[in-house]
Amino acid sequence: VTLFVALYDYEAITEDDLSFHKGEKFQILNSSEGDWWEARSLTTGETGYIPSNYVAPVD
């Protein structure tokens, strides 16, 4: 499982989006939707859509 880490803070715009803070880690559930990925936060356990350009793979 490839994990991703937030590079910036993000505040949800719609109820389907997931708010997060810089440094938060995610498991990507679906990355086939283009620039918005469905993800689960490993910090909160919540799922929602995140902007793919706000995250990077964890080394």
Rank of each mutant, 00 (worst) to 15 (best):
V1I: 13
V1D: 12
V1P: 13
V1W: 13
V1K: 10
V1F: 14
V1A: 13
T2N: 11
T2W: 11
T2I: 12
T2D: 10
T2P: 12
L3Y: 13
L3S: 05
L3E: 08
F4S: 03
F4H: 06
F4Y: 15
F4K: 02
F4W: 15
F4D: 00
F4A: 09
F4I: 03
V5T: 05
V5G: 03
V5Q: 07
V5F: 10
V5P: 00
V5W: 07
V5H: 05
V5E: 07
A6Q: 00
A6Y: 01
A6I: 01
A6H: 00
A6K: 00
A6E: 00
A6M: 01
A6P: 00
A6R: 00
L7G: 02
L7S: 03
L7R: 04
L7F: 03
L7N: 03
L7D: 01
L7H: 03
L7Y: 03
L7T: 04
Y8G: 05
Y8R: 08
Y8K: 08
Y8F: 11
Y8V: 06
Y8D: 07
D9K: 04
D9F: 04
D9E: 06
D9A: 06
Y10K: 03
Y10W: 11
Y10P: 00
Y10G: 02
Y10E: 00
Y10T: 01
E11Q: 12
E11C: 13
E11F: 10
E11S: 10
E11G: 06
E11W: 11
E11N: 11
A12D: 02
A12T: 04
A12K: 08
A12M: 03
A12L: 01
I13C: 12
I13P: 08
I13G: 11
I13H: 12
I13Y: 08
I13D: 09
I13Q: 15
T14A: 13
T14P: 03
T14S: 15
T14W: 14
E15H: 11
E15L: 11
E15V: 11
E15I: 11
E15N: 12
E15M: 11
E15W: 08
D16A: 14
D16I: 14
D16Q: 14
D16L: 14
D16M: 14
D16N: 15
D16H: 15
D16P: 06
D16G: 15
D17S: 15
L18D: 00
L18W: 04
L18V: 05
L18E: 00
L18G: 01
L18K: 02
L18N: 01
L18P: 02
S19R: 04
S19K: 04
S19D: 04
S19E: 04
F20V: 04
F20Q: 00
F20P: 00
F20A: 02
F20W: 01
H21S: 12
H21P: 06
H21G: 07
H21Y: 13
H21C: 12
H21K: 15
H21W: 08
H21R: 14
H21M: 12
K22R: 11
K22L: 06
K22G: 04
K22F: 05
K22S: 07
K22Y: 05
G23W: 05
G23R: 02
G23C: 06
G23V: 01
G23M: 03
E24Y: 06
E24Q: 06
E24L: 01
E24S: 04
E24C: 06
E24T: 08
K25W: 13
K25R: 13
K25F: 14
K25T: 11
K25H: 12
K25D: 02
K25V: 15
K25C: 10
K25G: 04
K25N: 07
F26C: 01
F26I: 04
F26Y: 01
F26N: 00
Q27G: 03
Q27D: 07
Q27W: 14
Q27A: 09
Q27R: 09
Q27S: 08
Q27P: 00
Q27C: 11
Q27V: 15
I28R: 04
I28C: 04
I28S: 01
I28W: 02
I28V: 10
I28D: 00
L29S: 05
L29P: 04
L29G: 04
L29C: 08
N30W: 08
N30F: 07
N30K: 09
N30H: 08
S31D: 12
S31Y: 13
S31T: 13
S31P: 09
S31V: 10
S31N: 12
S31R: 12
S32N: 11
S32I: 10
S32G: 11
S32Y: 10
S32D: 11
S32C: 12
S32E: 11
E33R: 15
E33P: 11
E33V: 12
E33Y: 12
G34F: 10
G34R: 12
G34Y: 10
G34M: 12
G34E: 12
G34W: 11
G34D: 12
G34K: 14
G34A: 14
D35G: 13
D35M: 14
D35A: 12
D35C: 13
W36K: 14
W36C: 07
W36P: 06
W36Y: 11
W36I: 08
W36A: 06
W36S: 06
W37S: 02
W37V: 06
W37Y: 09
W37K: 03
W37C: 04
W37M: 06
W37R: 02
W37T: 03
E38F: 15
E38G: 05
E38A: 08
E38M: 15
E38H: 15
A39E: 00
A39R: 00
A39V: 12
A39M: 05
A39F: 03
R40E: 05
R40T: 12
R40C: 08
R40F: 09
R40I: 11
S41I: 06
S41N: 13
S41K: 15
S41P: 01
S41A: 07
S41Q: 05
L42W: 07
L42S: 04
L42M: 12
L42E: 07
L42N: 04
L42A: 05
T43A: 10
T43C: 11
T43I: 09
T43N: 09
T44E: 01
T44V: 02
T44P: 01
T44D: 03
T44N: 06
T44L: 02
T44M: 02
T44C: 04
T44R: 04
G45N: 09
G45Q: 07
G45E: 05
E46M: 14
E46T: 08
E46V: 10
E46S: 10
E46W: 09
E46I: 10
T47C: 10
T47A: 07
T47D: 04
T47F: 07
T47P: 02
T47W: 09
T47H: 08
T47G: 04
T47Q: 10
G48E: 00
G48V: 02
G48I: 02
G48S: 01
G48P: 00
G48N: 01
G48A: 03
G48F: 03
G48C: 02
Y49H: 08
Y49N: 08
Y49E: 03
Y49G: 04
Y49K: 14
I50M: 02
I50K: 00
I50S: 01
I50E: 00
I50H: 00
I50Y: 00
I50Q: 00
I50R: 00
I50W: 01
P51I: 04
P51E: 02
P51M: 07
P51F: 07
P51Y: 07
P51L: 08
S52C: 09
S52R: 14
S52I: 06
S52M: 10
S52Y: 08
S52K: 14
S52H: 08
S52V: 09
S52Q: 07
S52L: 05
N53Y: 10
N53P: 06
N53T: 12
N53G: 10
N53C: 13
N53K: 14
N53S: 15
N53V: 10
Y54L: 11
Y54H: 08
Y54Q: 05
Y54W: 07
Y54C: 07
Y54G: 05
Y54T: 04
Y54N: 03
V55G: 01
V55R: 00
V55P: 00
V55I: 10
A56C: 09
A56I: 13
A56Y: 08
A56L: 08
A56Q: 10
A56E: 10
P57L: 08
P57N: 05
P57S: 07
P57R: 09
P57F: 06
P57K: 08
P57M: 09
P57V: 08
P57A: 09
V58A: 10
V58E: 10
V58K: 04
V58M: 12
V58P: 04
D59R: 09
D59K: 10
D59V: 13
D59E: 11
